[in-house]
Design a protein around this nucleic acid. Sequence first.
RNA 1: GCCCCGGUAGCUCAGUGGAUAGAGCGGCCGCCUCCUAAGCGGCAGGUCGCAGGUUCAACUCCUGUCCGGGGCACCA
Length: 585
Amino acid sequence: MKQLIEQLVASALAALPPDVLPEGLSARPEVERTRDAAHGDFACNVAMQLARAAKRNPRQLAQAIIAALPPSGLVTKVEIAGPGFINFFLSPAAYAAEIARVHAEGADYGRGRLAKPARALVEFVSANPTGPLHVGHGRQAAVGMTLASLLAYAGYDVAREYYINDAGRQMDILAVSTWLRYLEACGEHLPFPANGYRGDYVKDVAARLLAAEGEALRHPATAVLAALPPDEPQGGDKDAYVDALGLRARHLLGESGYRRVFDFALGIMLADIREDLGQFGVTFDRWFSERTLETDGAIDRALARLERQGQVYVKDGATWFHATAFGDEKDRVVVRENGQKTYFASDIAYHLEKRERGFDLLVDVLGADHHGYVARVRAGLEAMGEPGDCLEAPLIQFVSLFRGGEKVPMGKREAQFVTLRQLRAEVGNDACRLFYLMRSHDQPLDFDLELAKSRSSDNPVYYIQYAHARVASVLRQLADRGLPLDLDAGCAAVATLEDPHERALMSAVTRWPEVVALAAAQRGPHMLVHYLRDLANAFHTYYNALSFIVDDAGLRNARLALVTAAQQVLKNGLGLLGVSAPESM
RNA sequence: GCCCCGGUAGCUCAGUGGAUAGAGCGGCCGCCUCCUAAGCGGCAGGUCGCAGGUUCAACUCCUGUCCGGGGCACCA
């Protein structure tokens, strides 16, 4: 509908004589929904934009534009208001046609098309597979998944990806932790490292390792602990201690034995994460292994490309990337003194690889604590000759859980560590997804557990779902009374609906395609939630004000056509959010 | 010190340069012989942190500043 008005304005501008509007003036007319019904349905600000350049006062110019508007049966009235707004009043027929479109397009109503086709890769969660996902990852999962769905709905060709950090030191620490728990299960007595993974899940992994391998990986505690540096509680360095343990493990187990432990732990953790996310309705097109960057030569390709562009130099035995030349605050090491490539080298290699696969837009959904990473990777992309602005990195702020007004203590150090699984079990997937998406991602989230569980009007999940279920209930009532629903007749008769509640609901329903386009452009899935709440509110208000199942068949069908259109849009919206649209509650 | 994100109603937060800044919760007052009251309506509640600037128009953009949170490794 917005497009319709935009086209009218554009042709009016083109038709204006040069003495009114000098040629060559650039204007980008903005057409927007009005807030107040007294201002019509849409307003355009172009007259105010062009007034100065055209050397005319805005209202005068607006008058000229209105005079040049091509006639349209879909617009009943055009007014000049305020400082020079042009207000458009749509005819009932315009709304009726749009409501008919909702029914015709169904699940595709609101789907957009890009002016130019583009492929987007949304990478999200990508948590180290060293333990179960926690509530912070849950937010990244919900936001990433819905952002990807939203971009796809808006017309992007989208792929979802999880980057597995399976080559780093953290994974070595997990392997060591698992092995130590395994040795304990074998009956050895050893202290657990201060920097190890202490969670009970490691004991579970160890128990399964024991079941799979028997005691083949067992070594006496004395051999494991011999001549190690002191751990932190003994006044030593916890990092040095755990790394020394890692070397010891490799030595005693041999490279292949160590690999077995490492890969076993990795496999179980990854399977756990995949299952957790799957149950949460979050899926990926690809799980990308960091290790393959090395084996496939992607890192070498990236380094070679940097070198070809003259962006690397050697200092102190290490190879550095000249990141400051691309806006980063300091230069970055890509190959260490000891010849090992850094994690940063993997990062830029991975992003170059994404570009090589043909993605135009790279979206990295990251935790807020990763913000320093963005400038670096962008600098790397630019240095390799890729456009820096192809990378976008929405930073997801932290989640705090509240129970009865009290903040729930979290953090890996405390034992009270709350996992995504626990949260989902407590409040359910629907409330979980919606609460995660309610706030803008750059706003810290206070997650109220009691509210999420409450089956009351306070809870936005139920409020929106209830609107959907209520329509289903009305249709059941209709069937119970033996009345048919004639959608074609209803759509045709929508133009006869004149009650303000009806106009408000039509306005809300037909806004959906605009909301999708805006939310996608802004990368703001939370806008969908706010819109759906508004739509549900317009419906509930209408429901309270008027009966739908009335004796007059024409009126009845018209109202039901409108209400089922609202139901369709609610369903489309909830679908994007990954929240169910129940038929009854 | 540098970088990122916030600062809008008592609380939690929306707000794509436009008209009188919105919603939910909390408070107060109303609405079911009627399609689910898991709902609806009304009232009260604001110097949009502060100061400049750009603009026909600033909560929105720019600069500075104060406050809160996070980040600044040859870790991953």
